[in-house]
Nucleic acid binder design. Structure first.
Lengths: 148, 148
DNA sequence: GGCTAATAGTTGTATTTGTAACCAACAATG
DNA sequence: CATTGTTGGTTACAAATACAACTATTAGCC
């Protein structure tokens, strides 16, 4: 029933998704890398804090779907860059709330604007309907984002 | 004109693409990893040889959009697994043609069948139109595949 | 032919990542 | 209120990756 001979690598979703993600991500990653020496996870942590406000590492990990060790290292790097501060939670002293510094906020604002433009140029290849349909499909495939 | 405040991370294409790609790729990668101890690039090399027949490393790198050092190491690993053979080209002795062994062919056939099923389960969440539209968008975003 | 440049592929090394083990601090149960 | 289990987060070490430098072979050109 499943005939391996008719498998088409070019239509295989993980393959196509990966190419598209790599292609789309590369251009932008060069930006935060060149401008701020950030790695992808650092950008993500910054973006989450910029978008959703202060929160702890675990929360970011869940929202961004990133393992806690990666978050931990990204946070250390962002602290070194003076982009985030950690303040221990009084009630539960295992936990620490992460917060953007002014410099971190500025970097986020800068990158968010660039990201928007970047997104627009990516989407220039697509019609509005295609765009909408694509986001829809990607959300279905990516699993539901934990919304809060 | 580009107001950073209205940047929506959840709609940012590189972010969505990456999530979807990771989510989609993970399940399948566990399969070739568990069954054959292969890494992603090894699976890709195997898949290209299985799909398109014998070719040299450079060609695979171009088609799969993978750097030559990664290809080189994947090929070494596949040779160690007795899945591919290298035969030096007579005309140009820098070049070597890679070819699946019987075991390599068998592994490819096995994985191709699984990949097909896997793809189907991924696509179960999408309608036929969505599927078609998605492939279309991903091809546009991923850049044109070098077809030969 | 003899020189320089280009190409196929490999290797070295510094970063990055993944996995597991770990240390606190807190929670729950007896 | 001890003891066992969880949870937030870090660290250690192995594996994988990126990037540059390298070898070997071919190509172009005077």
């Amino acid at each position: 029933m499943t005939d391996p001979a008719q498998f088409r690598l070019q239509d295989f979703l993980p393959y196509l998704l990966n190419h598209a993600a790599e292609e789309a991500g590369q251009g932008f990653s060069r930006i935060y890398k060149d401008r701020y020496g950030m790695l992808r996870t650092e950008w993500r942590v910054l973006a989450h804090l910029g978008q959703f406000g202060p929160m702890d590492a675990t929360r970011i990990g869940i929202m961004a779907r990133v393992h806690k060790t990666k978050i931990s290292r990204a946070v250390t790097a962002l602290q070194d860059k003076r982009f985030v501060t950690r303040t221990l939670d009084g009630d539960d002293r295992r936990r620490a709330t992460l917060c953007l510094t002014q410099a971190g906020q500025a970097a986020y604002t800068d990158l968010a604007a660039i990201a928007q433009d970047y997104d627009r140029t990516l989407l220039a290849r697509l019609s509005a309907e295609e765009h909408a349909g694509l986001l829809d499909c990607l959300r279905k495939l990516g699993g539901d984002l934990p919304k809060d």
